[in-house]
Structure formats: C-alpha cells, structure tokens
Computed example of a mutant assay.
Amino acid sequence: MPAPTHELIASPFLGKYLVLRPGDSSGVKVQAHHYLELGQRASTRAPLPGWLRDAARRRWGLDLADRTTDEALLIRKESPYGHGRASYEVNNGCNWACNHCVYGAKRHEGLAWPARARLLHILCDAGVLWIELGGGEATIDRHFLETYALSYDLGMMVELLTNGSTLFRPRMLELLTSRRPYRVTLSIYGATEETFDGFTNRPGAFRKFMRGLAAAHEAELPLSLSVVITEKNAHEAPAMRALAERYASRVREYTHMSPTFTGGAEPLAQQAPEYLHSRTPFTGCDAGHTSLNVSPFGLATVCKVSRDHPIPLLKEGVAGLARLGGISDRALQRHSGCSGCALQKSCTTCMPLVTLYRKAGSPLDRYCQHA
C-alpha cells in the first residue's frame, strides 16, 4: 500500500483547531480563521501560508517551502459531534494467556473488512482525531494492516497497544515507519525469560517481546512501556523498571489488578498485596461525552469499563452516539452503598469499576477506603 503524502493534519478538536504531525504527539493550536484559510488554500492548490511553514519549522524541523497546501496538508472537516478520542478493540484474541488479563475469554473474532472500513469512517465522521488500536492483541488480527493504514489515511493520530510479539516482522515495520504512530505502548511482564514466559503462559514469549521491542526502538518508533506488577513477577520489579527505562522515556507502572470486563474475579488473584497503595481521588471524567470505546463488533460504549447499553454503530451510524453522553452520566452516578458515603469526594474508584469489583466478589480493600 503506497504511503500517503500528507506531512501534517489540520483538524477541529473539541472546540479548538490543531495542526498535528503524524507520528508526533505535539501539535500547534491555530485560530478558526487560520483553519478556514488552510481549507481555502487547499481547494486552489495554493502554497502553504508563511505562518504555517514557520510553525512547522519551529515545532518539527520541517521544511515545507516547496509544497502546496493540498500536498502537504490533510484537512479534517468539522463534525457536529464532539467525540475527539476513541479506543477500538480490533480483536479480543491474543497469542498469550496472561492470568491478569481483564478480557477473560480471548476469542479471535471481529468485523470483516468492509464493515470495519465503514466503522472507521463513522468514527472519523464523529470527530475522532486520536484513536487507540488495541485488543486483545491487535497485530495478530487478519485485517490489522488495513485497519491501521485506513485509520492513518483518514487523518487520525494512531496509538498502538501491543504485546510486541510481531513488531519485528518486515511488513509490520514497513507499515509503522511509513505511517508513523504517535505512540506504541507495550507492557513488560518480566525481566527474565523464565518469569516473562511464566507470566504469559507461553514459552518463547520473552524472546519475541525483546525482538519486537528492539526492532521498534531501532526504527525510532515513539515507545511507551507499562511495567505490570503482580504476585508472579513482583520479585523482578526493579529489573523490569530498569529494562523499561533503557528503551523508553515514557514509563508507567500498573500494580492494581481489576476484574475482567464481565466481572470475573480471576485477575484479582494475581494481585501482589505489597503493591496495593493509595491512588488519587476520582473527580470525574468526560468518557462518553468526548471519548468512547468500540468493541470488535462495532458496539460503542462509554469506555472499556462501562459497557452497558452499547450502541451498534454499523446499524445506527454516527447519529447513535448522541445517546452516549446520557448513558455516561447515569453510569457514573453513585448508587447502592456508595450513594450516601461520606468519603465520596476522596474516593479513588469510579462507579462502573466499583460495580465490576462487586460483581467479582472482590475484597473491599481493592477498591474502597472503608476497608
């Protein structure tokens, strides 16, 4: 598939206007009249305006002096919908079998390509500028290459969530270097082959992970590494942190295990008790209003945790998302034992996640201050 020619994206985003460079998380905020000017210049194949050439040189070191606006710039249209971000679970299947996984039964199933392409166009029409492609393990899906390429070509800034096991493959590297993501996020499950393979229940997983991580690093992909600590690998926590810091400047640590998205308790047994610590208070979020999650079958929900009342996007189209904000507001309302709690203002857990913990029969100390 030939690489697109645009160097930059001009797009509305939640009432503002941005100019972005694919493969880079930084951007330039522009005024509405500048956004309109770019559209007019693109329609007449006029040169890029001087202010944008200067901004691109300062921000990204780009020399666009000889490019016309329509060549260098992909211009996203205004959308009447306010959804700027989306996570899309391409396929919940996975080639590993980690016991802490929140997906529970990981089935290899998803949309056929024509329906999937239509889904991506719907998300673009909804105003989605930043999209996270994940799973399961997204890269083993049979239509992943096309899914990624179309997301990019529609002018969406792509983040890839992957276990890294396929990143060294030539076609994968060609895709990710010709259509650069703004972030590639991998999880570290061990610093040695014995621990990593035991965590994933897959012999050879560590070798594939390290091979993929090294290939992505050599290709200068923007890496983010998540250190996941459970009772299986807590003894290697310092070594995992050191490994992450060798390959990425962006490192996150995850120590609180959650139930599966269907309320299964299996991941809770993987918690390393000594890594349970206080978290910051939950003060609300805009999930369902400005962001959404999409299942492998095109069902839109408030987020990955709050999956009640899904909206079938392929049936209802982008207009169906008008209901999502109300669904979100109802889902976040405190109820049952939480409704009159005096500690609500310092609670660290949103109501949809509390509901999953309760369904899983979780010990109170995993999610509630009253423990």
Rank of each mutant, 00 (worst) to 15 (best):
H100A: 08
Y103A: 13
A126P: 01
E137R: 05
A149K: 09
V158L: 03
A97K: 15
P80A: 09
R107I: 15
D54R: 11
C101S: 02
M157I: 11
G136E: 02
T166Q: 14
T68V: 07
M156P: 00
F144S: 02
A105L: 14
G104R: 06
L119V: 04
D141A: 14
E137Q: 03
A86L: 05
R53A: 09
R58F: 11
R59H: 14
L154N: 01
R107W: 10
E159L: 14
R76V: 07
R142L: 13
N99D: 15
G135V: 07
D153C: 06
A97C: 12
C101E: 00
I188Q: 03
R107H: 12
K77M: 06
E132P: 05
E137I: 10
H121S: 11
V128S: 01
G82C: 09
L186N: 05
A97I: 14
V184H: 06
R59E: 15
E146C: 10
A72F: 00
T185V: 13
G84D: 06
E89Y: 13
L173Q: 12
L175W: 08
K106G: 02
L150A: 00
L167P: 00
C98E: 00
G93M: 04
G127S: 08
P80W: 11
R183I: 12
E159P: 09
R116W: 10
D63S: 08
R116P: 00
Y189C: 07
I75V: 07
S87P: 03
S87G: 08
E89P: 06
S151L: 05
W113T: 07
T68I: 07
A56D: 05
N95V: 12
G164Q: 03
G84I: 07
A97R: 15
S187W: 02
E71V: 08
N163G: 09
E137H: 06
N163L: 12
C101A: 01
R179H: 13
M172K: 04
Y88V: 08
